[in-house]
Design a protein around this nucleic acid. Structure first.
Length: 434
RNA sequence: GUGGAUGUAGCUCAAUGGUAGAGCAUCGCUCUGUGGCAGCGAGGGCUGCGGGUUCAAUUCCCGUCAUCCACCCCA
């Protein structure tokens, strides 16, 4: 995301510590887009009646280990945190498992269902940074838990995620959607897939041979050219779904149709985590420059059992905030506009400086944002700052004005100046701002 | 974990085996209580870090760290 490459600063031969690889400072100039995304999230979450939940950024490792045994995410990408005790803590690589944990721990399973939750916060994955990928990154998520496996909730999750991105004005959005079936039909399908690939081992790429051994569903992800013809002929999971899964998938698509959401069936779409089943989706902005999913999610009816609790059906999605920002930059979408100050206070001399915070306070109490530059001593340089900040009015407050208990109001456009009594400064400024 | 590119001022980027430059930005002066424009000037760099070759390295070589890109994987 950062276009520049930070340098190691040397101070007398010593290297100033840098932020960890793949973890970045979010500087003031980048904040407006973050602010816009947060604002849009709160708006969407409120409209769809999702309630906010925050979980700790650390969890016991087993929470994630149980939810994704065979995935890279838990096998090699977790940050373990060293503590004094024996506990094995990790920085969370995702939030869904944490939320399911919180759901049971806090008795949320006992209140009226389904529970619609959202979160926003940092996630941590130890991997090689690259476009749209960082070691510390931020996700927004929507989760609906305890929904009795009703596909209207799949549709609602997709809808909320889609609207969040769409209303940020990110263009060319399309929902890639697929079903990866339930335990039964997926198991049967994987067997078929393995059989199909088994006698083609010599024709496929190195990665695919590995996938065949460990995570056969991932075979469908391969982009290697020589694997494509084989992939094309491979059995598709959509053709092997059981009746229930087929019905769920069809029903979800019907909801999307009725909402006129743009989607594209992608029979090769699978998920990174083990707990997913049924409908899975990704939302992408379909341009070559944005080569990553902005949001992804699906149903996870098995997660609660993997954590050792009773079965609770659920569906959710996660949105990558840095990826949204990358897309906003690509489409030149500005961030949240700042509340720019219209008034600048310039002081001349120590006496005026001493009283200037008081004057600014009077204006602040009246809702008038006033800026200053106390570091500059000359009136000239203070006016230069005022000019650069494009304020409408500069208050000039010098020795003479302190003595007279007055202040000069300068119109920065015309250069006209008037002296008014200090006690009337708020109303005089107000009048001129309208 | 694998491969490629890159690293020089706050930013964008030049240059050269022999004392490191521009534009923008910052600050100052012209103008001692009055901005924009203009002119003039200043500050700011152990050329990412460490080592090697060399009389001499920012330049060549090696290592390392970081960034970017691709793979793996993923939001």
């Amino acid at each position: 995301m950062a276009k520049k490459s930070p340098k190691n600063k040397s101070v007398k031969g010593k290297i100033l510590p840098q932020s960890p690889k793949g973890m970045h400072d979010i500087l003031p100039e980048e904040q407006p887009r973050w602010e816009k995304i947060r604002g849009m999230l709160y708006k969407i979450a409120d409209a769809f009646n999702f309630l906010r939940i925050d979980t700790p950024i650390m969890e016991r490792a087993e929470i994630f280990e149980r939810s994704g045994e065979a995935t890279d995410l838990v096998e090699k990408q977790m940050y373990f945190v060293k503590t004094k005790g024996e506990d094995r803590f990790v920085l969370r690589p995702e939030a869904t498992a944490s939320i399911m944990r919180a759901y049971f721990q806090n008795g949320l399973s006992k209140i009226s269902q389904p529970l619609k939750l959202f979160y926003i916060g940092p996630m941590f994955r130890y991997e090689q940074p690259q476009a749209g990928r960082f070691r510390q990154f931020h996700q927004i998520g929507f989760e609906i838990i305890g929904d009795e496996d009703d596909s209207i909730y799949d549709a609602q999750i997709i809808l909320a995620s889609f609207r969040l991105i769409e209303e940020l004005k990110i263009k060319n959005l399309i929902i890639q959607i697929n079903s990866i079936g339930c335990r039964q039909c997926r198991h049967a399908y994987i067997k078929k897939l393995e059989e199909y690939y088994k006698n083609k081992q010599d024709e496929i790429c190195k990665n695919c041979r590995q996938r065949l051994a460990t995570r056969p569903l991932r075979l469908l992800d391969c982009k290697e050219e020589k694997c494509q013809p084989i992939k094309m002929e491979a059995p598709l999971i959509v053709d092997k779904l059981c009746n229930n899964c087929k019905r769920q998938f069809k029903s979800t698509l019907e909801y999307l149709d009725s909402l006129s959401l743009p989607y594209s069936l992608n029979p090769y779409l699978v998920r990174g985590l083990d707990y997913y089943n049924g409908v899975v989706f990704e939302i992408i902005s379909e341009v070559p420059e944005l080569n990553f999913a902005l949001a992804a999610g699906g149903r996870y009816d098995y997660l609660s059992e993997m954590l050792g609790e009773k079965k609770v059906c659920a569906v959710g999605s996660a949105v990558g905030i840095e990826r949204l920002i990358e897309a906003m930059r690509f489409y030149d979408i500005p961030g949240q506009l700042r509340n720019e100050a219209k008034v600048f206070l310039a002081y001349i001399g120590e006496e005026a400086k001493k009283k200037s915070l008081f004057v600014i306070e009077e204006l602040r109490k009246a809702g008038i944002k006033t800026i200053e530059s106390f570091i500059k001593e000359s009136l000239k340089s203070q006016l230069r700052v005022a000019d650069k900040k494009e304020v409408k009015i500069t208050l000039i407050f010098g020795q003479k004005e302190v003595f007279e208990e007055s202040v000069i109001i300068r119109n920065m456009e015309t250069g006209n100046q008037e002296t008014v009594p200090l006690i009337r400064v708020v109303e005089e400024v107000k009048r001129r701002l309208h």
